[in-house]
Simulated scan of single mutants.
Amino acid sequence: MSANLAQTRPQRQGGFTLLEMLVVLVIIGLLAGLVGPRLFSKVDQSKITTASTQVKLLRGAIENVRLDVGRYPTAEEGLALLSKPPADPALASRWRGPYLEDAVPLDPWNNPYQYSLPGQEGHGFALYSLGADGQRGGDGDAKDLGVLPAQ
Rank of each mutant, 00 (worst) to 15 (best):
P10L: 00
V43C: 09
G14D: 12
S93F: 06
L39C: 05
A80P: 00
V35T: 13
L145V: 14
L130G: 07
P98F: 02
R12G: 11
D139M: 09
D107R: 03
D107L: 10
A6V: 14
L39H: 01
V26P: 05
G14A: 09
G146E: 00
L127V: 01
A90H: 05
F16C: 02
K56D: 15
S52F: 05
D102C: 04
F125E: 00
S2F: 04
L34P: 06
K143W: 06
P37M: 02
A75K: 08
P73L: 06
R96S: 12
L145W: 09
A103S: 07
G134H: 03
E63I: 14
P86T: 01
V24P: 07
K84A: 03
L25G: 12
P149H: 04
A150K: 14
R59D: 15
F40E: 09
F16S: 09
Q54S: 13
L25C: 13
S129R: 04
P105V: 09
A80V: 11
L145H: 08
V35H: 03
G131A: 07
Q7F: 12
L145S: 12
R9S: 11
P10I: 08
T50L: 13
P118Q: 01
A126M: 11
D44P: 00
G70K: 14
A61K: 10
Q13L: 11
P108D: 09
K47H: 11
P89W: 06
L82N: 06
A92K: 14
A150F: 12
